[in-house]
């Protein structure tokens, strides 16, 4: 479904990604792990076109994404859930969700799986607070809202950056359940996560990043076996 091949990305003069590659098959939930500052968010932003890779290629359903604008990539069926939430603070919950709806029809398979009623069914909290300003929500509700907003666009692939960061353990459980539901609806998910324990419950496969490069790829058994990689590249 998506193949990222040897991409290099920069912020101004600082070279952040030094040849990152990864690959997801349709329907997978893959987790990208790694310490703070190694370039996980930059990898997602590069896929989304928010940072333009200077080298390498990203193919989504066979189409090259490098060089496209974020809105063009979104219209192809890639959804992005940023870290630190980034809901529209001066819009109501309902308006935030409306911002997720895409008018342009993608031909073929992607029917409207996610509708506003379905979202409100899955997130009763959001229905209750539909008239509230985004800035009045709790951290957990904001996280639900960013995910729900992206789902409204019925993406085929979701890139989600640290969905459990800064949330209380009970809410973390809710968020993970929601991700499992999303995944069951047929959406492919690439998730960045610092929380190893949370990740291991939901992911099919794992990538681990060191400074600007992949240092591990494999499933749970492989990850559990690779003790030195865990020691060197993950927070304890």
């Amino acid at each position: 479904m998506i193949e990222v091949e040897d991409i290099h990305s920069h912020y101004g003069k600082s070279h952040i990604l030094h040849g990152v590659s990864l690959e997801l098959k349709e329907g997978e939930l893959v987790c990208l792990l790694g310490r703070n500052g190694v370039g996980k968010s930059t990898t997602l932003k590069s896929i989304m076109g928010m940072v333009r890779p200077t080298q390498g290629s990203i193919r989504f359903d066979g189409k090259e994404l490098v060089g496209s604008q974020p809105y063009q990539i979104a219209r192809l069926g890639v959804g992005y859930v940023p870290e630190d939430r980034r809901i529209f603070k001066s819009l109501t919950v309902h308006e935030n969700l409306m911002m997720g709806v895409q008018k342009t029809k993608r031909g073929g398979a992607s029917e409207r799986v996610w509708t506003i009623d379905k979202i409100y069914g899955l997130f009763p909290n959001l229905r209750e607070r539909r008239g509230n300003k985004g800035s009045h929500l709790s951290g957990g509700e904001q996280q639900m809202l960013t995910v729900a907003r992206t789902l409204m666009g019925n993406p085929k692939l979701i890139l989600i950056d640290e969905p459990t960061e800064g949330l209380a353990p009970l809410i973390v459980k809710d968020v993970l359940e929601m991700l499992a539901t999303v995944r069951k609806s047929g959406v492919t998910v690439l998730m960045v996560e610092q929380n190893f324990k949370a990740a291991i419950k939901v992911a099919d496969r794992f990538y681990i990043m060191g400074k600007g490069q992949m240092v591990f790829a494999g499933d749970m058994a492989a990850l559990l076996a690779a003790e030195d990689v865990r020691k060197n590249y993950l927070e304890v």
Partner: peptide, 8 residues
């Protein structure tokens, strides 16, 4: 930037 990433 987020509006752009949502397809507008």
């Amino acid at each position: 930037e987020m509006v752009n990433a949502l397809g507008f």
